[in-house]
Design a protein around this nucleic acid. Structure first.
Length: 186
DNA sequence: AATCGTCGTTCTT
DNA sequence: AAGAACGACGATT
């Protein structure tokens, strides 16, 4: 039985983050929330893909390496994802997320591009589903995946976060006339 | 704006 | 164990 997934919370300028990790690396990250309990609650909602027995009960202190990485990424600077342990994801999801890690800060790619890299050129919609459940947002930069034309696409953590993260990396995002947002791809 | 094709995942039988 | 339903899509009409 694989076991020993630890949980913890830490504070950043924007609020409270929660994280889950093993000795091998990070399993899940929650974007800053208004409160410590809100962050933990969100983290708990990531349990379903992973058996409850995988988790430790008492909270541990999040590794400084992770905290630094998150703060750096939040500032919009280029970062590596760091050590990850995504053993609970399907092969397709792993390929999608791995492809996502290839897009540099300040740039964007389409869902179709990611699908192609994952080996399903017409699976862009499935790629969207995979990205929607990215357990490590920010570090796996799913905010850099936008719609094919000039649309923004969605974001699991809330569209406002996607806009904020892209703008911090220097990507221009403007409201469309009517509804939605327009992205200026490089 | 409405519709349809496509595909991995998740719910239902 | 199938089959239906469901999207952070994309192209067509």
């Amino acid at each position: 039985m694989k076991q020993g997934v630890h949980r913890g919370v830490f504070k950043v300028r924007e609020g409270w983050c929660a994280a889950a990790w093993t000795p091998k690396g990070l399993c899940a990250l929650i974007l800053p929330q208004v409160s410590r309990s809100a962050a933990l609650k969100k983290l708990t909602s990531y349990l379903p893909p992973m058996p409850r027995s995988f988790w430790d009960d008492p909270l541990k202190t999040v590794p400084p390496k992770v905290r630094d990485l998150v703060r750096k990424a939040l500032s919009g600077k280029p970062t590596n994802p760091g050590a990850l342990d995504l053993f609970f994801l399907t092969p397709f999801q792993q390929k999608v997320l791995q492809a996502t890690c290839q897009v540099p800060a300040g740039q964007t790619r389409s869902y179709g591009w990611v699908a192609g890299k994952a080996g399903s050129p017409r699976g862009y919609r499935a790629a969207g589903s995979a990205l929607n459940r990215n357990p490590v947002p920010l570090l796996i930069p799913c905010h850099r995946i936008t719609a094919a034309g000039d649309g923004l696409g969605g974001y699991g953590g809330g569209i406002e976060w996607k806009i904020r993260l892209l703008e911090r990396e220097g990507v221009k995002v403007r409201p469309k006339e009517g509804k939605g947002y327009r992205v200026f791809h490089p």
